[in-house]
Amino acid sequence: MADADVKAPAAEAAAEGGAAAPEAADEAPKRVVDPDFEPEIIVFACHYCAYAAADLAGSMRLQYPTNIRMIKLPCTGKLEVIHLLKAIEAGADGVYAAGCLEGECHYLKGNLWARKRVEHVKRLLEEVGIEPERVEMYNMSSAMGARFAEVATEFTERIKALGPNPVRREGVDAHAAAREALGGVAMPDDPVPSAATSEEGHAE
């Protein structure tokens, strides 16, 4: 798996337009990839798109890594800086937000706010010595089951190449910690997303 896996993060970083891209390209080959490392990845998924896309991927019988664990949100715009940080602090190896396509947010701009917050968290992680590539923002629609699987695979490979989060806390369930940090913002897990009513949408 060596070559393809190691190159993936650099290509991803470049695709994301991050300034870190060249650095990632330089550093990637030096990393020793532990083939047995199974990262714990938390996905903050909007229930209007990514969460439904995951369900579609399942229906389409598409394969994607089991490393990702989802937390359903009414909108990625509800995601705050502290939520992403807490997930990393609790030991998650990677965290990403998956919101609607830009321009398609049910609440108009929630996904754009999320992108700005993810970018800010990248800067904060850099300050504290954690690779900013451990957090990311993705956009997709509920019809993009294949894209959901592709993102999950790509991101998992990226984190495998990065190795474990240096803040790895024994006995702490990062997924549970992230859910706790979100408080009432996180929605209950529901493998079959139901069509949201407008009441639900404005309950925030």
Partner: peptide, 10 residues
């Protein structure tokens, strides 16, 4: 505080 904890942990 979270940043300081992440740093301290490392």
């Amino acid at each position: 505080a979270s940043e300081l904890r992440i740093k301290a942990e490392q």
